Simulated assay, not measured.
Amino acid sequence: MDLVLRISRAIDRFLWLMAKVGSWCAALLVLVVTYDVFTRYLGVPKVFGLTSTMLQESEYWLHSFLIVLVVGYAYTKQSHVRIDLIRENLSERAKYIVEIAGILLALIPYSFLGAWLSWPYVVRSYTSGEISKSQTGLTDLWILKSGLIILFVLIGLAGISQLIKSMAGLTGRLPDDLKATTIGGGH
């Protein structure tokens, strides 16, 4: 069990790293929006051949990747919706069983299916050389669309990590410091 818990910790570190990259997307998003506002409303000239459309499209690209890169980490920190009315009254063992069932029956199949169905969408975008519908927009839309695959892979990895921790909890081998981020805790 120690080996699989180390695997879970490695997955969690990777998800934390991805979330850090996502947080840089947030910082860049603030800078791009600020630059866009200054150039548009204060008459500051744009540099490097950028257009307002490029700036606006890069804003939603950054926002998209912020969400894509942070969501897996957020799941491992119990930052997702739960129906606590029923769950809060369950025993710790029952909570682990519910968590395991949810991961095996919903999260992992959903992640696999989402990545599998997104793959042709991204490949089609790449092979066709898809670009923005605007003449002055961004190119290489496959990069943005590949965020779907990344999203599902990161959620799937988070599910695997949580599954490992839940199984360890069910067998009584989960360290106390991981309980709150595995089955939730007090509010």
Rank of each mutant, 00 (worst) to 15 (best):
A27I: 14
K20E: 04
I108T: 10
L55S: 03
R13Y: 09
H63Y: 13
L15E: 00
V37F: 13
G43N: 10
S58R: 04
A10C: 06
L163N: 00
L113P: 04
G184Q: 00
T182A: 04
E99P: 01
M18D: 04
Y35M: 01
I183V: 14
G22P: 07
Y75I: 11
L141S: 00
F48E: 04
K95L: 02
T182L: 06
S146G: 06
I97F: 11
I67H: 08
M167F: 12
I108H: 12
I155V: 15
P45V: 00
K133N: 10
L178T: 03
G102Q: 03
N89T: 12
L148M: 15
I108Y: 11
I108C: 11
L117G: 04
H80N: 11
H63I: 08
A10G: 11
L157S: 03
E59V: 13
R13W: 09
I149K: 09
T139G: 12
F152I: 06
G102E: 01
L170H: 06
I83C: 02
Y73L: 05
G137A: 08
I67L: 14
A115W: 14
A158N: 07
I100L: 03
S8D: 08
V153R: 13
I164P: 08
S111E: 11
I143N: 06
E59L: 08
L28S: 13
M18A: 14
I150R: 07
W16K: 07
Y73H: 12
S125M: 07
K165H: 14
I150K: 07
L50K: 09
A106Y: 12
L163Q: 00
E57H: 07
Y110H: 13
R13T: 05
K179F: 05
I155M: 15
D140C: 06
G72N: 01
F112V: 15
W119M: 11
L157V: 03
D2E: 12
Y60T: 10
